[in-house]
Amino acid sequence: MNGGADLGGMMGFGPVIEEENEPNFHAPWEARVLGMTVALGACGLWNIDQSRYARESMQPADYMKSSYYHVWLHGISSLLKDRGMITDDELVAGKQLQPAVAIKRKLLPQDVHAVLMAGGPANREQTGAAQFKVGDRVRTMNTHPTTHTRLPRYARDKAGIISKVHGVHVFPDSSAQGLGEAPSWLYQVTFTATTLWGEDKNENDTVSLDLWQPHLRIES
């Protein structure tokens, strides 16, 4: 979706300002939001792509002015409400008013280490040959889906070169909609800065993105 999260190439946000000796969390609630976001994933009622879609669905103006843990708080609140796990009335009352929804599992403290160390690999068994190989010239699709996509606006309808073949990965554009993982070949595609941004850019510079086969077609 062309939402507030698709920031590549926007202007006017000012300089990058680094905080010296920045802590991981600036308030206790930020740590709780991080921990809750990770822990709630174990309930098995959404995948990582659905959780990214929930965050980027925030009103663009709100998204751009919110701190990242505010965005995450918005994300889990919206996922929990969409699945009927909690209601606004319960949040106001501060207690349970509706029966709980069935979850696949609850993350227990003794399992945290193993779950974090195992991660959640996105690669899948390879079925069928890759359509492209390193060195192929491709063009990205000109597409503006209202749903989640990992093809940012700034890289649509642009010609680039396949610079790496990563293997077969879950296709987030499908998975975020709950339409299944639709595993697809994933490639690193390299674009020159002048292709993406115009002739006044440094001709040495490049930007590479990791894109899936459905985002690409061969460029003649």
């Binding site: 969390f25 740590a31 709780r32 991080l34 921990g35 809750m36 990770v38 822990a39 709630l40 309930c43 796990m85 909690i86 349970q96 709980a100 979850i103 609850k106 993350l107 227990l108 403290p109 399992d111 945290v112 280490h113 974090l116």
Partner: peptide, 15 residues
């Protein structure tokens, strides 16, 4: 509601 164990959240943050 039984979705979350706060001790697991502590453990994640500590990690």
């Amino acid at each position: 509601k039984g979705y979350l164990d706060s001790a697991a959240v502590d453990e994640i943050v500590q990690t």
